[in-house]
Design a protein around this nucleic acid. Sequence first.
DNA 1: TAAGATTTGTGCGTATGTATT
DNA 2: TAATACATACGCACAAATCTT
Lengths: 90, 90
Amino acid sequence: MSPSIDYEGPTPPYQQIAAEIVRDIESGALAVDRPIPSESALTRKWGVARDTARRAVRHLRDLGYVYTVPQRGTYVRDRSTEGGEGQDDA
Amino acid sequence: MSPSIDYEGPTPPYQQIAAEIVRDIESGALAVDRPIPSESALTRKWGVARDTARRAVRHLRDLGYVYTVPQRGTYVRDRSTEGGEGQDDA
DNA sequence: TAAGATTTGTGCGTATGTATT
DNA sequence: TAATACATACGCACAAATCTT
């Protein structure tokens, strides 16, 4: 199913994209240590600018859902037992 | 003296700008809870794009040197005793 | 009350450098 | 050599909140 951005609501596009990826992670659609869609992929999939896709990825990193390997890609992080720095939410 | 960016070295411009502000903070030139130069000011002062100025500010935030109040400005954070989340460096 | 300036937040487009495959 | 992907940097624009006049 193709996602769509809501430009009217209060939630910024990059957060909407991040939320979608979070759902994919928590549902298991995106497994641990597997790459999430690239910036280009997100750009095409959502019809947004690269910066927006970048913000989404950065947001996920800030939330601790993923980790980025420079010049390689961004991967799903294991939030279950690895380390204890997992910030749950609010 | 007017600062200048070194575009040749390995240190990206936004980090050079951030480092300069860190020096101002640690020297006391920028006091706690006082605003650091705005993004526009940094843009003019260093002759860089706003994106670069924003990165510098974000970097300072990531390092725990400042905090940003939306639509207000970015201020020097008290890293001495307030809270214990101060990440010293590496 | 209103207008204007200031500042941050967000978005889009593009280019270059570097590393990996 | 080429495609892919990330990091960084440049440009521009508008919105929202704040502050000043």
